[in-house]
């Protein structure tokens, strides 16, 4: 398995921006049409966003719109929080795809007044709060890696990245942080 030594190292602390690895999570990719979305909402008792690039958060669970028929479902580790069996049962009669990707990717938090600036070093999106408000999420690129970026607060972002890219991404952010503060 990929060496995550760098990703597991202590938080990268800079005046203005803090990058830290988030605890393991349960993750599913759900694919399907409007009927699947509605059924998933009911089974999970959680909003599954129909609006593009929006995330719905409920305590330790979240549903992120990734595409018109694709969502990333997050929950704190353990299927009790993710309600995966209930979801699987509710979708049985509908054409859909539900794939456990818990261990495919890891999550990083980027926090602090310079969080936007740090991410802008490698992300081509406009990250100003007016263009990328709290609750917005999307697949995009950071440096040469594909990520899912989610703004969780005024000065807080969550990054989901494939684990094989995690070492590269942490090194990239550490490098970018040299230019801050």
């Amino acid at each position: 398995m990929r060496d995550l030594t760098q990703a597991r190292r202590g938080p990268l602390l800079k005046p203005g921006a803090l990058v830290k690895t988030l605890p393991p999570a349960t993750r599913f990719i759900l694919r399907g049409g409007p009927a699947v979305r509605a059924a998933a909402e009911q089974a999970l008792a959680l909003e599954v966003p129909a609006s593009p690039c929006r995330a719905a958060l409920d305590g330790e669970r979240a549903a992120l719109w990734l595409g018109p028929d694709e969502w990333l479902l997050l929950a704190s580790e353990g299927s009790a929080a993710s309600r995966a069996p209930a979801l699987s049962a509710a979708l049985q009669a509908l054409p859909h795809s539900l794939v456990d990707i818990s261990h495919r990717q890891i999550a990083l938090a980027v926090e602090g007044p310079a969080a936007e600036t740090l991410l802008a070093a490698g992300c081509p999106l406009d990250l100003d709060a007016r263009a990328f408000p709290i609750g917005m999420c999307t697949r995009t690129v950071l440096g040469k890696a594909e990520i899912v970026l989610w703004r969780t607060g005024t000065e807080a972002f969550r990054i989901e990245v494939w684990r094989s890219f995690a070492g590269y991404l942490c090194a990239f952010l550490a490098e970018a942080a040299h230019g801050i503060g």
Binding site: P52, G67, E70, R139, T140, V141
Partner: peptide
């Protein structure tokens, strides 16, 4: 294709 976005 919006590969690194919605994928569509």
């Amino acid at each position: 294709r919006h590969t690194h976005g919605c994928g569509r």
